[in-house]
Each structure stands twice: as C-alpha cells, then as structure tokens.
Write a protein that binds this DNA or RNA. Structure first.
Lengths: 240, 240
DNA sequence: AGCATAGGCATACACCGTAAGCCTGTCAAC
DNA sequence: GTTGACAGGCTTACGGTGTATGCCTATGCT
C-alpha cells in the first residue's frame, strides 16, 4: 500500500515537503547536468523529488514545459557584469560569463538545438537585453547592433559547443566511446588518433598535437579578441 | 503469415531490392530532414525502407551507429571549393559551403550537440582537412591554425544554429508554438512580440524590427568578414 | 543434393510520455 | 462539528521507443 495511507493518529507524519515547480525544475536541471539530457525523463525527475511521475503534471503542463523551465533556470544563472566601465570590457566579461553558463550546463546547448523555439519568459530575456544595451552604449546603431549581437552570440555558442562536444578534437570523450569496439564498418576508435593515414589527411595529422594541447580558454579569448577588435574598429570608423 | 512465405513457383517474386547500410542511412537522413530528429526511430526508418525494425540490425550495430551514419552522410555532402585562388577567397567559400550543408540538414546540429562524440570515419574528416589546408596555405603556423579553425568552425555552427533555431528572434517558428496556449506560467505566445514590456527590456523592444528584418545571409557575411579581416591582419603582421 | 549462412521476421522486455480516474489531507462555509 | 470543494498526491493503462533472442527462408557454395 502506498505511503500516506497510514492509520489516523499514527505518530510520525510523512513530512515530505510540498512539491513545487521550482523544486521539480531544479531537480531536472541537476539530472541534466549530472547524467545527460536523455536521462531527463518524467519518471526519473519524479524519483529525484521523491514522487510518482504523474504528480509532476500538477506543476508542469508537459515535458516541454519542464524543459522550458530548465532553459529559464539556466538563463537565470547568468550573472550580470558591472556596466560602469568601457563598453568593450563589459562586452568581454559578458561573453565570458555566457561561456561560463554554457559550460556549467553543457547539455542546454543540445536542448536549444533540437527544440528550436524562442525563449518566452521575460526573465530569460534579460541577458539578451543586457547584451543589446552594451552594444548600443558603444554607439552602434540598432541595425548593426542586431548583427553584432547575433555574431557574438553565435560565436560563443558555437565555440562552446565544439569545446564540450569535442566533435573534431579526436582525443577527448574517450569514456563515451570506449565500449563501442568495431563490429561493423568502423575504426577501432581506441587508437583512432594514431592510425590516421598521414598521406590522406596530412594537415590533420600535423595539427594533432596542437588540437590536443589547445587550451579552451586561450581558444575562446583568441576568437573573442578577433571579433571585438573588428567591432571596435567599426565604432571608431563611424562614431555615433 | 509474413511476406516471402509464398508458395514455391508462385509467379511474381517480392522483388524487394536488397537492404544495405547505405539505403538505411539515406532513408534515416531523409526522415531527419523532413520530419525532425525525434522522428528518426528504428521502426520509422524500417518502414521507410519497407522492412521490419529488427532487420536494420543486420546492417547497423545499433541506433548510435545509424546516427553516426547520418553524420557521415552529411559530411559527404560538403562540396570542396576550388582552391586555385587566394586563400581568403577559398576560406570564404568554404565557410559558405559549410553553412549551406548545415542549413540543408539543420537537425544535424542537434545531433552533434547531444551526442558529443568526435567523428571517426575518415571521409567525414575531409572537410576538416580542407579547412586546415587552406589556413596553412595562408602562411599561418600550425598552432594558430588550430585556433583559427576552431574559431571559424564555432562561428559558423553557432550562427547557423541561431539562424535555424530562432532562439531569440521572437518572430519566427510560429508553427511549432501555435498550439501551446497559456495553461501554466506562460505568456500567450501568439502576441508575444507586442506585449514585451518596454520599460523592462527597452533595448529588445527597440531592436525588434531589426531582429525581424535581419537577413540571415547578410548576417553571416557580416560576421565572416569580421573574422576573416581579423585573421588576415594577423597574417600580414607576421608573414611566414 | 546438401548444407552454411545472410538476412529477413515475430516475440518479448523494459522504459518512455501522458490520459483518465481514484484517494486523501486541508480548509472554508455553514 | 459537518460538509463539500479542491489541491495534490497515486494507480492503471495505452501506444510509443530501442533491442535481445530466436525462428524461418532464400541464396550460394561444394
């Protein structure tokens, strides 16, 4: 018989604290961060908060809604840099902070990528508002400001995605791949790096040590400098 | 009783052509492009090629392997630009081509994002080889070449992701959102754009017309110019 | 002709999201 | 106090998923 079905007057109450949307979303986010996106199921989240799956539906409309909640929670994690400085410093810190958020919740990129729908909650839009404000204060007109916003935003997301996804880096994410030994048409994976044929992909082979040694922070700062320098040169060329 | 269980000597044979890994992958890619990533299930793919789900397992190890096949097929779609030109033109065309591929198969970004494992098939690495070769021919040393490769690659992926995902653009992807009217804590969605409170997000409100009107091609070229100009300035500053 | 094998198929299991409905503890109105 | 509404848990059930296991047949080699 289920809990809560105790006789009346029984001494100790169940004492489970009330379920709330926030508790649910928080648990789901934790699961996503710890166990990956596909581990986030209604049953798994329910178990995490000590409840049956269907009970969640009193607090979230459906799974989509729960995922929306996760997105909002991630956006809420953005800590706004102090803006009382030259715009370019604020922009740089904002970009770094966005990268920090994405790296702290790397699976949120996949979440955005396959749901493909815009944020709707006001609170989630505040980082965007911040970015546009910084750009505007640099004296850039609104039209170009949108271009720059998208370029910077895309750059940050893409670089972090390559960083955490290791799509090309060839040395990382060994754990996920380890048990997949060749059965069909596949390289043995384990020694993938060593057996790249130099005559067919000489540039990759030559670049391998640098790919392996590449520091993600330096990587990011390099690209950010490139973009910000380009943007700044446009500002001084056409001052407001 | 199943098909193929006909009496011997029956006039018309089933005539189904042999199942191959390529046919399966091709069908899966088509489904992903037409119906989205979540539509790609073993049963759905099997139906597409006129077979039962379990028959696929004679040609792919598991679903992961099938998804690997999709990734490889997408990479095979990359058409290499003519390289007998100044490196910066080749680089520009390579970037455009990569964007074309990603836009033709927009769901592959989500696929990369949540699988997070490197490409292993040699053929899939040829576009990377191409990119590194172009960068190297610009006279950039290998270490910095890797930085530039990652920056450009990340930029392209991120910008296309924002482009197709419409994460912030607020005007698009109406169809996917239309039937989700407010039940829980949610804005009505339909009139989302109009009801953004100007006092709380003035910069977004001001930017909205430009967000809506922003031409993705111009957007991409803008960012690409910014990056390539920055890269070129480093080349002339420190010639090989 | 006999037989191995490749490549189909059917069944079964555990897990998924969620519709429908039930049960109980809380609380306001009388 | 009793009553009734209701919020918020729970159970069951249905159709979907990936895939392990095993069967059956058509093909090709000897």
């Amino acid at each position: 018989m289920p809990a809560g079905n105790r006789k009346i007057g029984e001494p100790e109450a169940p004492v489970r604290e009330r379920l709330t949307r926030d508790r649910i979303v928080e648990a789901a986010l934790r699961i996503m961060d710890d166990e990956g996106l596909e581990a986030v199921s209604m049953r798994r989240v329910a178990r995490e908060v000590g409840v049956e799956a269907m009970s969640l539906y009193h607090h979230v409309r459906d799974k989509e809604d729960l995922l929306d909640g996760i997105c909002a929670a991630v956006m809420r994690d953005f800590r706004f840099p102090n803006e009382d400085r030259p715009w370019i410093e604020v922009a740089r810190d904002g970009a770094r902070e966005w990268r920090r958020v994405l790296r702290d919740h790397p699976n949120v990129i996949a979440l955005w990528a396959d749901r493909q729908r815009p944020m709707t909650e006001l609170e989630s839009l505040m980082p965007m508002e911040f970015a546009l404000r910084v750009i505007q204060r640099a004296g850039i007109d609104e039209r170009e400001g949108v271009l720059i916003f998208n370029v910077l935003g895309g750059f940050i997301m893409g670089v972090v995605m390559m960083e955490v996804g290791a799509m090309f880096s060839a040395g990382t994410s060994r754990a996920k791949v380890a048990d997949r030994n060749a059965v069909h048409s596949k390289l043995p994976d384990e020694a993938f790096v060593q057996f790249l044929p130099e005559d067919q992909v000489p540039c990759i082979v030559a670049a391998l040590p640098h790919l392996a040694a590449c520091d993600p922070d330096e990587q990011f700062e390099f690209g950010l400098d490139l973009l910000l320098a380009g943007i700044e040169s446009r500002v001084v060329a056409a001052p407001a």
